[in-house]
Design a protein around this nucleic acid. Structure first.
Lengths: 131, 131, 131, 131
DNA sequence: GTGGTCTAGACCACG
DNA sequence: GTGGTCTAGACCACT
């Protein structure tokens, strides 16, 4: 796996794990129907606790990114991914809000901010095509 | 004060408080040199503990948004605000990264994402001019 | 632990604690990667409040001397220590300034002052080699 | 007067005031027998509280840097200054100790440290000759 | 069991 | 009256 965790980060491990997997999807390293390691094997692989992996998987399942079959194991949702509905957009806005107010306070203009976002988007595109 | 907290939120109160004050700065409700309530009065005002207010103030002081005068109380930094240096941009990118990978996974395109950002920027501009 | 505090001192306990730990690093009693006691156990050990220990730890973490693992506890930064950058030197100078002006006023010459500094350095070297 | 205070500093004002006056002595701007402003006039001059000036003066008097005559006012001690006795040296060492352990931890060598001290001494010499 | 967060209440230094 | 410091005790998130 391509999972990269920072055990010393203030960010909880299960959150990092969610991000890494969603990032794998965004970069198309993980495509609908692709299998994911079992909770046990992934935990052993990364060297973290079972519960931590499970917590991340449960969130991804709940959000519709993955399916968890009792026997078949874990797969990327073959029916596509959760849509960007209003609830999601609302949550996205509330995440962006403090970032943007901070940027404005520091004198970082809208253009600069949008370019930074754009750069990140491009990074995903390129890696998605090549990786 | 215009502080609006959600005591039920998973977001720590002192973080919300930081955001609210930085937002006040972004909206120009709080201008350089403006006084802020004392930890005690703000705590009493909002109905939270003074240590919680203090924690938020200490962060804002450390970041350079406010000055804590020894006995005179707290003021918005009259010498302007922290610059958007490389360290800040790096931190901003790492905050945006998971948001954007999530957006891509959900099929929210770059244009939509940028428009949402832009909308938030505009909201600040308008409120900054009128408020 | 080798921590020695003076609870009667005007110097805040958490500052003394910071000094003691940095001194431990300087004397190489504490080496990169070494574990430090948890806030709770150290607090109980010394007989002070855990918040006081935590305050000292937070400062040392911020300065880069230690890492606070999520649940694993606290370790001396295995990647080495903060560098003596310009910001640090500036702060060091402003700390030395009043000490030196006082020394001059009392007729303590540069040679004597430097020798006192040198003695302290030597003490650290010797203890570092033997301790 | 040449007093320069930073009202926003974490350093108490009366401490800054002590430092400034001792610095004036070190730079020979203030010589034995020279008059100092009264508590009232200095407080008014700098725009701080009477008690603050008084607290600084009392310390300087106690240490032997100044004399306070009830009628004649305040003068720099005409009989010279307090000597660098053992008590003073002990206190100096305990002030230097944490500075030096910090320096060592950050990889600042003895030579660099001594040169920084030396530079500050030279600054006083030059200003003492010209000022 | 670990650190993170929050509350409550106290004393002190400062001005 | 202000912030700084310390204590005591509690609940929660994380692993």
């Amino acid at each position: 796996m391509f999972i990269q965790l920072d055990l010393e980060s203030a960010e909880p491990i299960y959150i990092q794990l969610q991000h890494q997997i969603i990032e794998g999807i965004a970069k198309k390293k993980l495509q609908p129907g692709d299998p994911l390691p079992s909770v046990r094997s992934l935990a052993a692989d990364i060297g973290i606790n079972l519960h931590t992996v499970n917590k991340a998987y449960q969130y991804l399942k709940q959000e519709g990114f993955i399916l968890i079959h009792r026997q078949k194991g874990v797969v990327i949702n073959p029916d596509g991914f959760p849509k960007a509905d209003e609830a999601y957009k609302k949550q996205l806005k509330s995440s962006l809000h403090p970032l943007i107010s901070n940027a404005i306070s520091r004198g970082l203009g809208e253009d600069d901010f949008l370019r930074i976002c754009s750069d990140i988007f491009n990074k995903f595109k390129v890696e998605g095509e090549n990786g």
